[in-house]
Computed example of a mutant assay.
Amino acid sequence: MKDSQILSFAKDTIKNEAAAIAQLENFLTQDFPKAVNCIYHSKGRVVITGIGKSAIIAQKIVATLNSTGTPAIFMHAADAIHGDLGNIQKDDVVICISKSGNTPEIKVLVPLIKNFNNKLIGLTGNKDSFLGQQADFVLNAYIEQEACPNNLAPTTSTTAQLVIGDALAVSLLHLKGFSSKDFAKYHPGGALGKKLYLRVADITAQNNLPQVAPNSKISDVIVEISEKMLGATAVIEKGDILGIITDGDIRRMLQKSQDINQLTARDIMGEAPKTIDNQALALEAKNMLEHFGISQLIATEKGSYKGIVHLHNLIKEGII
Rank of each mutant, 00 (worst) to 15 (best):
A213M: 13
E146L: 13
G177S: 13
N87E: 11
P149E: 03
A18V: 13
A78L: 08
N215F: 12
D128H: 08
L109M: 07
K43S: 15
N208K: 14
V94P: 02
I21L: 13
C148S: 05
G243Y: 01
P111Y: 08
Q206Y: 12
S216Q: 09
I298T: 04
E317Q: 12
T159Q: 03
A169E: 04
C148G: 03
L175T: 06
I308P: 01
I39K: 02
E146Y: 11
P111S: 02
A77W: 00
L254A: 10
L28W: 11
N207R: 10
S129M: 07
L139M: 07
I81E: 01
K306F: 04
K217S: 12
N140M: 06
D166S: 14
F130S: 03
I315C: 07
I203Q: 00
D247K: 04
R199D: 04
I294L: 10
V212G: 08
A20M: 04
R251K: 14
E25D: 14
V138Y: 01
Y186V: 14
D277T: 08
F130Y: 07
E224N: 06
L131D: 00
E146N: 06
T233S: 06
H187M: 15
L314V: 14
F137I: 02
E144C: 08
N26T: 15
I51W: 00
T49R: 01
K11V: 13
L196F: 10
